[in-house]
Simulated assay, not measured.
Amino acid sequence: MTTNFIGLDTAKTEKLASALNELLSNYQIFYMNVRGYHWNIKGDNFFELHAKFEELYDDLLLKIDEIAERVLTLGHRPAHAYSTYIEKSDVPERKDVSDGKEAVNNIVESFAKLISKQRDLLALAGEADDEGTVSLMSDYISQQEKTVWMYRSYLGL
């Protein structure tokens, strides 16, 4: 077994980096969607949702940077082209959404995809003894599960 500079199996880190780049792609598309919701929101809950969406995209931006830096820490290169993000993302690009409920529904759906991918990454990182990625994914999952509950409550679900 060949190990990288942080003592992890290089073949396993290659798989992890690929999965992290896929997650990064999903985060980037989700981030731009939420920016669009923030900019274009209209209606009764404008002030509440405008502020909530800003809070969300600020958090997504931090996670984007953490994921990219984790790829680098594993000895690989993070994806950094929107063409790659669109190609690899399961979160669909959303355009011209101004309705609050539609935006929140899209957010809940996007989080479901992220959480699923992060659970897969959690298992993959565990198999690779990559405690750094395990910790990151575990933190994201627990935080986002609560966020999904709150957004679903807003929707009355």
Rank of each mutant, 00 (worst) to 15 (best):
M1E: 01
M1K: 01
F5V: 02
I6Q: 04
I6Y: 04
G7F: 02
L8W: 00
D9N: 10
K12Q: 08
T13G: 00
T13Y: 00
L16P: 00
A17N: 00
A17M: 03
A17L: 01
A17F: 04
S18C: 05
S18P: 04
S18D: 13
A19T: 03
L20F: 15
L20Q: 03
N21E: 04
E22P: 02
L24N: 06
L24V: 00
S25F: 01
S25P: 02
Y27Q: 09
F30Y: 13
F30I: 03
M32R: 09
M32Y: 13
N33I: 03
N33H: 10
R35I: 15
R35P: 04
G36S: 10
Y37V: 09
Y37F: 15
H38G: 06
W39A: 12
N40I: 11
N40D: 11
I41N: 01
G43Y: 05
N45L: 12
N45R: 10
F46V: 12
L49D: 10
H50S: 13
A51E: 15
A51S: 15
K52W: 12
F53M: 13
E54Q: 14
E54L: 10
E54N: 13
E55I: 10
K63H: 12
K63W: 11
I64N: 13
I64D: 10
I64P: 13
I64V: 14
D65S: 14
D65E: 15
E66K: 14
I67P: 08
A68W: 13
A68I: 09
E69F: 07
R70N: 11
V71G: 11
L72V: 15
T73C: 14
L74G: 09
G75H: 11
R77P: 06
H80N: 13
A81C: 09
A81E: 10
Y82P: 08
T84D: 15
Y85K: 08
I86S: 12
I86F: 11
E87P: 02
S89F: 08
D90L: 12
D90T: 13
D90H: 12
D90F: 11
E93F: 14
K95Y: 14
D96S: 14
D96Q: 11
D96E: 14
D96H: 09
V97D: 03
G100Y: 07
G100E: 00
G100S: 09
A103F: 10
A103Q: 04
V104C: 08
V104S: 06
V104G: 05
N106V: 03
N106A: 15
I107N: 05
V108H: 02
E109F: 01
S110D: 11
S110L: 07
F111R: 06
I115Q: 01
S116Y: 15
K117S: 03
Q118S: 08
Q118C: 02
L121I: 10
L122N: 01
L124C: 07
L124K: 08
G126H: 05
A128N: 01
A128H: 05
A128V: 07
D130W: 04
L136Y: 00
L136T: 04
L136C: 00
M137I: 02
S138E: 06
S138N: 06
D139S: 05
D139A: 07
Y140P: 02
Y140L: 07
S142L: 00
Q143F: 04
Q143T: 09
Q143R: 00
E145P: 00
T147Q: 02
T147W: 03
T147I: 02
V148Q: 06
W149K: 06
R152C: 09
R152D: 08
S153N: 06
Y154R: 06
L155E: 10
G156T: 07
L157D: 07
L157T: 09
L157H: 08
L157F: 11
